[in-house]
Write a protein that binds this DNA or RNA. Structure first.
Length: 596
RNA sequence: GGGGUCGUAGUUCAGUCCGGUUAGAACGCUGGCCUGUCACGCCAGAGGUCGCGAGUUCGAGUCUCGUCGGCCCCGCCA
């Protein structure tokens, strides 16, 4: 770079800099070589500025500019000037001006990049991930990471103002029995023992409350060794928080303040508070899911009582066996073709439905449907009344166990909305879901498992059901849902040893096992534990939604593929036998190529 | 663990259903011309292990089997 010192970035060159001399450094985004005159779009993290190489301004740099290619790294000293009349480019912020080059330095050359750095051009994700450093040069990727940074800053700003301490918790910790699979790390100095990477700092933040820290937060990496999805990575980032001396209301108020601050600071969007609240029961009844997308209607309606008496055997049998019949009114969608209905049926089946019954409402309110004849006129009328059905509507029925019907109709509702573009893309609809069940019965393991985690406090009024009817105990947990995606979850925690022991019992964790795995927590609860609660936000998901992306990979600098591999570094990789031996690990898989 | 989908030039894709000449297009790339472009333009050119392996066939990008990989989903994710 010699004595050249960068004076501006490629975004901040404006008419205020006219006739001044500036030094820009960045990458050659595009070159338009007219022979006698060469234009280069110079790109840096902030933006793009057009540089003109003209022989009458500087012969030498004009000569040199012929050799410039895409992604060369250059430094340009030049004079800012107004573009000639009619030659302005309103598409870029610096489009009124240009920099006439007086001196060009090529800081580094570049081979032709493996894919174009243009937003519109779709490039397969595997190529993007292999060359992630080039992918990240794309302006929209810079925007995503910049937004992520701003969101973190706004969070810190708000929490610092509200008297929170940012405290780090260990990455090497112990494996916990409940929950997801752990990533394990062998201990060299403790042969045969393993650390686990944290699935969340849950226990440490509760201990911090018992330590009297009162308000804690951390933007922290968490690890879960489970299969990946568009919104799930093996390592992800959480805004983790915990407070003492609060109840649900206190936390939800605080979080609404936090989210409002973040949206205002980063996107300039002013959200309305308080956010709507639904109980788990309401959410399941109306949307068939505990993370409802509330940007559109198409709510579920129960017609089990009507179906029980109708002439359709399948419905009767299901109801007799304790199942339910529920329905969705797809308003004005009776124009769906036979083929559409076949596709939707297949869709429903992929979520476990046996079939998908439907009814089109004709002009005279009569039914066009394979199942019409099984419903007496008064039953048809009753169904239509309950679903507010009108001519032109089509009703979809789900009949099965409650959980299957909820899943199928919940997904069908989303699919119908997507097909008919009923979802306002720019909206941010937050909703709190509260009063989750504390436990759910796991058929495979034949025991109750915690719906959130085993440290969630049961509702006071349900406490005595813990032993007699565990399934009916509600918890003091709350989830924050944004546009149908769970972005945060938390609860008031158990702060009394006796209650914690009762919950462990309900989970079939014996005293001995509880003592062995959570002894430190149980003991801490007897040594001055304040009432406390908290919440954790999926930062990746939140930023993804704010950036309008469809996968969290687009807001993570170096994400992994569905097979949990990093295509750039090629992790995970083989290690040497010597390295394994040092860790007292003896593999019993076949020695593969690459294993030394 | 399961279902779906894709894999052809540097990139994005067509060709595969129904096997048959030298595997095409666009963008990009290379060279030449061009003083107002901004998706610059014009002319010329280079560029392919059709993911990999086996099989069927006179003949395979195309059919069959296997395998590897990307993505989406179910299960799983306290």
């Amino acid at each position: 770079m010699g004595e050249l010192k960068r004076t501006h970035d490629c975004y901040s060159i404006t008419e205020e800099s006219l006739e001044t001399e500036v030094v820009l450094m960045g990458w050659v985004h595009r070159r338009r070589d007219h022979g006698g005159l060469i234009f280069v779009d110079l790109r840096d993290r902030k933006g793009i500025t057009q540089v003109v190489f003209a022989p009458e301004v500087d012969e030498k740099s004009h000569q040199k500019a012929h050799s410039l290619r895409s992604e060369y790294v250059i430094a340009v000293r030049g004079r800012v000037r107004r573009r000639p009349e009619g030659m302005e480019n309103p598409k870029i912020k610096t489009g009124m001006v240009e920099v006439a080059c007086l001196e060009l330095r090529i800081l580094n050359t570049s081979k032709t990049p493996p894919f174009p750095l243009e937003e519109e051009k779709e490039v397969s994700e595997s190529v993007r991930l292999k060359y992630r450093y080039i992918d990240l040069r794309k302006p929209h990727m810079v925007e995503n990471l910049t937004l992520r940074h701003s969101v973190c800053q706004a969070m810190r700003e708000f929490l610092n103002q509200h008297d929170f301490l940012e405290i780090e918790t260990p990455m090497l910790t112990r494996s916990t029995p409940e929950g997801a699979r752990d990533y394990l790390v062998p201990s060299r100095v403790n042969p045969g023992r393993f650390y686990a990477l944290p699935q969340s700092p849950q226990l440490f933040k509760q201990i911090l409350m018992i330590s009297g820290m009162e308000r804690y937060y951390q933007i922290v990496r968490c690890f879960r060794d489970e299969d990946l999805r568009a919104d799930r990575q093996p390592e992800f980032t959480q805004l983790d928080m915990e407070l003492s001396f609060v109840n649900e209301e206190g936390i939800m108020d605080l979080i609404e303040g936090l989210i409002t601050h973040v949206f205002s600071r980063t996107l300039g969007i002013e959200l309305n508070t308080p956010f709507p609240r639904l109980t788990y029961q309401e959410a399941m009844d109306r949307f068939g899911t505990d993370r409802p997308d509330t940007r559109f209607g198409l709510e579920l309606v129960d017609i089990t009582d009507i179906a029980a008496g109708c002439g359709l055997k399948v419905f009767n049998t299901i109801v007799e066996k304790g199942g339910v019949v529920r329905a969705v009114n797809a308003k004005g969608m009776a124009d769906l073709s036979r083929k559409d209905l076949d596709v939707l049926t297949e869709f429903a089946q992929s979520f476990g439905a046996k079939g998908l019954a439907w009814v089109k409402i004709k002009e005279d309110r009569s039914w066009q449907s394979p199942i019409a004849k099984f419903f007496k006129p008064e039953e048809q009328e009753a169904v239509m009344t309950r679903l507010s059905a009108a001519p032109g509507d089509i009703l979809f029925f789900g009949a099965d166990s409650r959980s299957t019907v909820d899943r199928v109709l919940g997904e069908l509702r989303l699919e119908l909305a997507r097909r008919r573009n009923l979802i306002p893309e720019k909206d941010f609809n937050f909703v709190w879901v509260t009063h989750f069940p504390l436990l759910e019965f796991d058929e495979d393991e034949g025991r109750f498992k915690a719906l959130h985690h085993p440290f969630t406090a049961p509702s006071r009024e349900d406490l005595d059901l813990l032993e007699e009817d565990p399934a009916r105990v509600r918890s003091r947990a709350y989830d924050l849902v944004l546009n149908g995606i769970e972005i945060g979850g938390g609860s008031i925690r158990i702060h009394q040893e006796a209650v914690q022991k009762r919950v462990f019992n309900a989970l079939n964790i014996g005293d001995e096992e509880a003592e062995e795995k959570f002894g430190f927590l149980l003991e801490a609860l007897t040594l001055g534990a304040p009432p406390h609660g908290g919440i954790a936000f999926g930062l990746d998901r939140l930023v993804m939604l704010m950036a309008g992306r469809e996968t969290i990979r687009d807001v993570i600098a170096f994400p992994k593929t569905q097979k949990a591999q990093c295509l750039m570094t090629r992790a995970p990789a083989h290690v040497s036998m010597a390295q394994l031996a040092e860790l007292y690990l003896r593999p019993d898989w076949k020695q593969e190529e690459g294993q030394t």
